[in-house]
């Protein structure tokens, strides 16, 4: 029973990460900008949140949660302007920019953390930040189930995303810009503004997803390792979820489950008895992702103008 609860716990927390980041990607792609840089945005968001925990270790639980969220979102948003500026105004190749952002995020975060560590203690040239005590403020024990506030926050953000996307003027306009920006412009929508909103929201949610990820199951993070392809797993969740918030929520649970299995499989007697090497469990989410995409990409519902730079006069 305890292991099932543990599995549920890990599934929910990893699903929260994937859902947040995939929803971020969803806003950006609906506005017409492909965000391959989600991985880098996650790293920067994780850095922002971890720095807040590092600098203000004495905050009370509600303040800590708010401050960490604010820190990670702020870093994510600032970092996403790199994509917004180049993709919206300079019509740069969004795939190259995203790839560069992923590499830059890891390099920049490593440099910042190493510098901080070395200034605090010259004999500590690592890129690891610890937040053992701070992390406990995010957890609530419900029996043997460790509830993490981020699970609830992610659920709320999912509900908001659904309402925003389908029930508000902003959401419908955003989607118009990703489908046919020239038509949207012809009825007076500012495509540039809409695309900026999409990119910045993806920075906000991607950054938040980053801090949730580095607090899932561990209480320290080595920034040299980045976020292990989670930004790309989130993109797969988004594609499998057909760019719709509710379906993204469901597919995040599926992928979260396979990721969680790698952490807790040792608790299940029958899985241990199968004697599968542990690295195979590490591979599992990526293998599942590849298989799922193989069967779902054919009917992709990607926005029509996704990734195509907007030119005002073009028809």
């Amino acid at each position: 029973m305890a292991t099932f609860l543990l599995l549920a716990e890990y599934t929910l927390i990893f699903a929260s990460v994937l859902m947040l980041v995939a929803l971020g990607g969803c806003y950006s792609e609906h506005s017409g900008v492909i965000n391959i840089g989600l991985e880098g945005i996650m790293v920067m968001g994780a850095l922002g949140g971890a720095l807040v925990m590092n600098m203000f270790p004495g905050l009370s639980a509600p303040l800590m949660i708010l401050a960490v969220m604010a820190g990670s979102m702020l870093f994510g948003v600032i970092y996403s302007t790199l994509l917004g500026f180049s993709a919206i105004h300079l019509k740069a190749d969004q795939t190259i920019i995203g790839t560069a952002m992923n590499m830059l995020g890891v390099a920049l975060a490593t440099i910042i953390v190493k510098t901080i560590n070395m200034q605090a203690n010259a004999s500590n040239p690592t890129s690891t930040l610890q937040y053992i005590a701070q992390k406990k403020l995010f957890l609530v024990k419900l029996g043997s189930f460790e509830f993490n506030w981020f699970m609830l926050i992610s659920l709320v953000i999912l509900a908001i995303a659904y309402v925003v996307m389908y029930k508000t003027r902003f959401g419908l306009r955003l989607q118009a810009c990703g489908e046919f920006p020239q038509a949207a412009a012809s009825v007076g929508i500012d495509v540039y503004k809409m695309r900026w909103s999409g990119v910045l929201i993806s920075g906000l949610l991607g950054g938040l997803g980053g801090i949730v990820y580095i607090m899932a199951g561990v209480s320290e993070w080595k920034f040299e390792n980045g976020v292990a392809g989670f930004g790309f797993l989130a993109m797969a969740v988004m594609i499998f979820g057909q760019y719709r918030p509710l379906r993204i929520g469901v597919s995040a649970l599926l992928f979260g489950f396979f990721r969680a299995l790698g952490n807790v499989y040792t608790g299940f007697g029958f899985l241990v008895a199968l004697n599968i090497p542990s690295t195979l469990y590490n591979m599992l989410p990526y293998i599942v992702c590849l298989i799922v995409l193989t069967f779902t990409s054919k009917n992709s519902r990607a926005p029509k103008a996704d990734g195509i730079p907007y030119e005002k006069g073009q028809r």
């Binding site: 795939t95 392809g229 790309f232 993109m235 797969a236 591979m283 990526y286 992702c289 590849l290 995409l293």
Partner: peptide, 10 residues
């Protein structure tokens, strides 16, 4: 891009 990244990790 996505299949490439997944294969990288696998």
């Amino acid at each position: 891009v996505i299949s490439g990244i997944m294969l990288n990790w696998i």
